[in-house]
């Protein structure tokens, strides 16, 4: 394969990869927005991870051991 073909592949590859990342990024943004809106998940409560960070305080969300095993 000559230099020219390589550069063409590189160019297209770059374009579509960026497009892909772009789509993933904005669907992430949308999913965050939607989950907050429908109340599926309240993101803002995670600020409490900072305020209530004593070792003996109750975790905001406990780790579920049955899920953890599939890690």
């Amino acid at each position: 394969m000559d230099q020219e073909t390589l550069l063409t592949i590189q160019g297209y590859g770059k374009f579509f990869l960026i497009l892909f990342v772009f789509i993933v990024f904005y669907s992430y943004a949308y999913s965050i927005y939607k989950r907050q809106k429908t109340g599926e998940r309240d993101f803002e409560k995670y600020s409490n991870l900072v305020h209530d960070d004593f070792l003996d305080s109750c975790p905001l969300e406990k780790r579920d051991n049955s899920i953890e095993k599939n890690d």
Partner: peptide, 22 residues
């Protein structure tokens, strides 16, 4: 960590922090 902790304020928008991270 330190700004919300020291001021006792919530992060203005936790969602924005996730997006700007990525």
């Amino acid at each position: 960590y330190f700004l919300p902790k020291e001021s006792g304020q919530n992060i203005f928008s936790y969602k924005l922090s996730l997006l700007s991270f990525w």
